[in-house]
């Protein structure tokens, strides 16, 4: 089963605004390895080849915090979704 299919099994309540913001200048100027593209357990980061920008599909975020820590360049501004929003685990 692909990871995006796994995510469809989870329960999410999606807020309008993303709780993850990326500073694209930092990504472009400082980051060669682009950890976020492979480190996210939800595989939510992708590179938009057209404008060379990293995008994150915040709606599927498992709120693990891995990207926040792995991005040592500090390009990721990460807060918890507002109360009630985000992933809601039913087993935990």
């Amino acid at each position: 089963m692909r990871v995006d299919e796994k995510l469809t099994i989870d329960a999410f309540k999606t807020d309008i605004e993303s709780h993850i913001k990326i500073n694209h200048d930092i990504c472009r100027d400082k980051c060669k390895i682009k950890y976020c593209l492979f480190i996210c357990p939800g595989h939510l980061y992708t590179l938009n080849e057209e404008n060379n920008e990293v995008v994150v599909e915040f709606a599927g975020c498992l709120e693990c915090g891995t990207c926040k820590i792995a991005c040592i360049e500090g390009a990721i501004e990460w807060i918890y979704p507002r109360g009630e929003y985000g992933v809601q685990y039913r087993y935990g």
């Binding site: 796994k6 099994i9 693990c64 915090g65 992933v87 039913r90 935990g92």
Partner: peptide, 9 residues
Amino acid sequence: SLVEYSAHI
């Protein structure tokens, strides 16, 4: 059958 996929640091 898979009933949940989760992650946490």
